[in-house]
Amino acid sequence: MKRQLAELSGRDGEKRAALWLRAKGWSILANRVRTPLGEIDLVARRGKLVAFVEVKWRKDKAELDHAIDERRLSRVAAAAEAVAHDYAREGEDIRIDVILLAPGSFPRHIANAWQP
């Protein structure tokens, strides 16, 4: 039951992140993209930039500082590399972003979070 609740709150966080990105001028190309290397929560485009976005939802704003780590980011980066050709056109830039969400706080968007 606890796992199901976490899954539901995660999906809600992804919907909120997508709405926030749209408000900032991004178009959402896909959500919950599954690859053999991992899952990408959102794929978004603004201009000539495609972002593969990891979304983290926490009940408490203080927990956001520890919500993402190098291991998780490397999985998202590997998954993005596997499907980048499906979303990015010739000449477009790609990057890995993170959006951190918690009740009562504005989304924290970390652009270009993965730089190997």
Rank of each mutant, 00 (worst) to 15 (best):
M1Q: 04
K2A: 06
Q4T: 04
Q4F: 09
Q4G: 04
Q4A: 13
L5K: 10
L5M: 13
R11C: 01
G13D: 09
G13H: 09
E14W: 01
K15D: 08
A17N: 11
L19F: 11
W20G: 00
W20R: 00
W20E: 05
L21R: 12
L21P: 02
L21E: 01
R22S: 07
K24W: 10
K24L: 11
S27I: 05
S27Y: 06
L29C: 07
L29K: 12
V33H: 08
R34E: 13
L37S: 10
L37Q: 10
G38N: 10
L42M: 07
V43R: 11
A44S: 14
L49V: 15
V50Y: 11
V50W: 13
V50R: 15
A51D: 13
A51W: 08
A51L: 04
V53K: 08
E54T: 07
R58D: 00
R58L: 02
K59R: 11
D60H: 13
D60R: 15
K61F: 00
E63Q: 11
E63S: 13
L64Y: 00
D65T: 04
H66M: 01
H66K: 11
A67P: 05
A67L: 01
I68N: 01
I68P: 01
E70C: 01
L73M: 09
S74E: 12
V76S: 13
A77V: 05
A78R: 15
A79R: 02
A79S: 03
E81I: 02
V83G: 12
Y87D: 07
Y87R: 10
R89L: 13
G91P: 00
E92Y: 14
I94E: 09
I94M: 14
R95Y: 12
D97N: 03
D97S: 06
D97V: 01
L100E: 02
L101W: 01
L101K: 03
A102I: 02
P103S: 11
G104W: 07
F106W: 10
I110R: 12
W114R: 03
